[in-house]
Design a protein around this nucleic acid. Structure first.
Lengths: 233, 233
DNA sequence: ACAAAAGTGTTTGGAGTACACCCATGA
DNA sequence: TCATGGGTGTACTCCAAACACTTTTGT
């Protein structure tokens, strides 16, 4: 549990963790339960934490992801900070914060990150006192989330879309190690909200030096098996 | 002077303010003098401030710019936060902070903004206890700046270059209300570090719906006067 | 044999790039 | 009249987009 000499209770990090299940773009959220006058209230929040006193922001975000998933070397990129005084106005959020941190909390400015992870990695959700799940990004706007986390997810989505325009190879962070061109195309279309032509896509992909064709095909599909590829450096 | 009930001494904003003098891209820096054991030490810093307790981050950045220049409606965009514990390790910076704020200071996380302003606006630098000047961005790397402000400027420059790729009309924030195509081209080339062809540039510019030709030409030039344009919405 | 997705070329239009000369003005 | 920058058109290349049929494999 947080301790006031270790933690800096004025600054936090939050991670918008994206994944791809083969069809939809997903975000990882943590279930939160608050006992409020004997009523149990459930909602969701982003993975995050207030920072440690001797910790850099990037380190804090890595720590959060590692504590959550057990993974290291996840693509992680800071995209924006949120510090409006009204992000702390919901009494439920204040109550939850003071209970979980055991600290007196004023305004917290949060530094937001996006992370990209391969959903197929066997993720060990550290489920002692919470559980985490994947949700469609399209469902988020109807959900009940803590603080201003809906806004943070929306901005994170915008950011990663821009970033994927600039650095298309980041798509590979979301795919399994071995993948088919269809999977890559579907992912590309999901993030760019387009429907690209199969032939033109093959052409474009053929010019990517970092995409290497393997001597393997997919297995267990009820039709012609597609060739597998991997991302090289 | 800051007062601990008004100010939040854990979070600050810093502004990387860009301007264009017709030839070079400039950054605004504030002169700082520190009296250190009877030696006067001079260096420079970005305009910035710790935030007020009830103030949003964007508001704090606007306030800083307004206090500095007297202007409102300046283009301002948050681009990154800096919170490494070592940004506060120079004893000169700590000394300066505690003297100017009269507060006990631990680590400060700063939220950095870029701003674009028209250098021709008659800026009233609020020069009671400091003075501000424009410096070539190319000179910055050899200068002595407070905290991690060199890094912040470099990242701000990267950010605004990207942003100008995405939103080319932001260039007009740096030009006077009325300008020539040459001025626009030179500015474009300075920020993109290119040398574009005059004819091709005219062609490109002719397709910008928001660029309107005026019935005026520049004055006082020792050669054929160029047509003036303005930026419309 | 059939259902389902894999894989494969050509044409066309628009955008970017390269390139050189005459024009208007002030000194 | 000369020096200085202003203003203009054409040809080529390359990339993006549109578009339909044959192949492979499992059931």
């Amino acid at each position: 549990m947080p301790n006031s000499t270790l933690y800096n209770p004025h600054i936090s990090v939050d991670c918008v963790v994206f994944g791809f299940d083969g069809e939809k773009l997903k975000v990882m959220l943590i279930e939160r339960s608050i006992d409020e006058q004997n009523e149990l209230y459930n909602d969701k929040k982003l993975p995050g934490s207030i920072i440690l006193n001797d910790e850099d922001l990037d380190e804090a975000a890595s720590r959060v992801l590692n504590e959550l998933t057990g993974l290291k070397n996840i693509y992680l990129s800071q995209f924006r900070s949120f510090g409006s005084p009204n992000r702390m106005t919901n009494p439920r959020d204040i109550l939850w914060l003071e209970r979980t941190t055991q600290l007196k909390i004023g305004r917290i400015v949060t530094v937001a990150y996006v992370a990209l992870i391969k959903i197929d990695r066997k993720i060990v959700f550290n489920a002692d006192d919470y559980s985490a799940n994947w949700y469609d990004v399209s469902e988020i706007s109807n959900m009940s989330l803590a603080f201003d986390h809906i806004t943070i997810i929306e901005k994170g989505l915008e950011h990663i879309r821009h970033q994927l325009d600039v650095e298309p190879h980041l798509l590979f962070e979301l795919l399994p190690k071995k993948f088919t061109i269809s999977q890559l195309r579907i992912l590309h279309d999901v993030v760019h909200r387009t429907r690209s032509d199969v032939r033109n896509f093959q052409k474009k992909v053929a010019q990517m030096p970092y995409l290497v064709m393997l001597d393997e095909v997919e297995e267990g599909v009820p039709h012609r098996a597609a060739r597998l590829y991997k991302y090289k450096k």
